[in-house]
């Protein structure tokens, strides 16, 4: 009995506390809600629906963005106190030859990757669109690499690139009596070698999108052109490509962002010397990762992320500008 009493004594304030902190606000909210008009009620519903997502966007998106800018103005190695550094991290970047190499590499990924992949993808889609026999099967073959994991495929390609006696490409070259190529062990071949699997994996997606774009072009345009006796090349230039513009804009912007942010392939294909040899494959994201999580120079790394942000922003805006105008 004594125990029961004690329980009750503890219970009563506990329930009261629950009521005070949770129940009462809910009750208040509901009674306030009931007194609203129908239109006001809908607004209340909207904000209720948005409450959790807004919290998420503020805490997980906006605050970290601001934090990244804030950090970029400080020096901090996680061990010591954060120190105000003003713009010195950006000054240090501008004076760092490695950064400029990385900056140029990042653009090389973009400048090689986007046009090459789009031209190949468009060519495939253009002809595949005209094929009926085993269309679905062939389309699936091209699409399959898109579903692979970049990490897994980076290792497969890394194996392909090894010198003899290991690598597939060099063994094929040796069988053909051609001198072996250094691939990943060369400052000129390494970047294209790392880029190849990235293009390969993205191709399927681009082909599918191009196919959809091609099919959305009204048949009547072609009919009219045929009646006029226009050559096929002219049809391609004058009708198909202009009408595909929305698709092309989307793919250019989308794949450019992808190539500017390349990381998984580089990281996994150059684990011995990340971004090597001689930083010739190092993209900006890898530099950020290395500075932040190997060097623990959080402020300097944050400054690099700010640069990445600006690069993406500027490149996307320029592309949209140019492609929209044409």
């Amino acid at each position: 009995m004594l125990a029961q009493d004690r329980n009750r004594q503890i219970d009563r304030p506990a329930t009261h506390r629950v009521w005070r902190t949770v129940g009462f606000p809910i009750w208040l909210y509901l009674s306030w809600y009931r007194s609203r008009t129908i239109r006001q009620k809908r607004v209340v519903w909207a904000w209720t629906f948005l409450s959790v997502p807004l919290l998420f966007y503020v805490v997980i998106r906006f605050y970290p963005t601001a934090d990244a800018f804030w950090l970029s103005l400080h020096d901090w190695n996680l061990l010591s106190d954060m120190e105000w550094a003003g713009m010195s991290n950006f000054g240090r970047l501008a004076a760092d030859p490695e950064f400029w190499q990385v900056f140029w590499n990042t653009f090389q990924y973009l400048l090689l990757g986007t046009p090459i992949s789009l031209v190949i993808a468009f060519t495939i889609a253009y002809y595949l669109d005209q094929v009926r026999f085993m269309h679905g099967f062939i389309r699936a073959l091209y699409f399959l690499p898109f579903l692979t994991t970049a990490v897994a495929m980076a290792w497969v390609w890394r194996w392909f690139y090894q010198p003899v006696p290991v690598g597939v490409f060099n063994n094929i070259l040796a069988e053909l009596g051609i001198a072996q190529q250094p691939f990943l062990r060369s400052t000129s071949q390494a970047l294209p070698s790392v880029l190849a699997p990235a293009i390969w994996a993205g191709l399927g997606f681009q082909v599918i999108i191009f196919l959809a774009g091609l099919r959305a072009i009204p048949q009547s345009y072609y009919e009219a052109a045929r009646i006029d006796g226009v050559s096929r090349l002219t049809i391609l230039w004058e009708i198909t490509i202009p009408l595909l513009k929305p698709t092309i804009v989307f793919l250019v912007v989308f794949s450019s962002i992808g190539f500017l942010r390349i990381f998984d392939h580089v990281f996994n294909m150059t684990t011995n010397d990340p971004g090597g040899p001689l930083n010739s494959t190092e993209p900006l994201v890898l530099m950020i990762y290395d500075t932040a999580f190997n060097g623990f120079q959080m402020g300097y790394a944050a400054a690099q992320t700010v640069v990445l942000f600006l690069v993406l922003l500027v490149v996307s805006l320029i592309q949209l500008r140019i492609l929209r105008d044409r």
Binding site: R185, S186, T187, D273, G276, P277, L278, N279, N294, G295
Partner: peptide, 20 residues
């Protein structure tokens, strides 16, 4: 001071000779 960066310089030193 920073083992991995200092090692990186050694790697680059040899790579510059054999690759460049």
């Amino acid at each position: 001071a920073n083992e991995s960066d200092q090692r990186g310089e050694m790697m680059a030193m040899v790579d510059r000779i054999v690759l460049e």
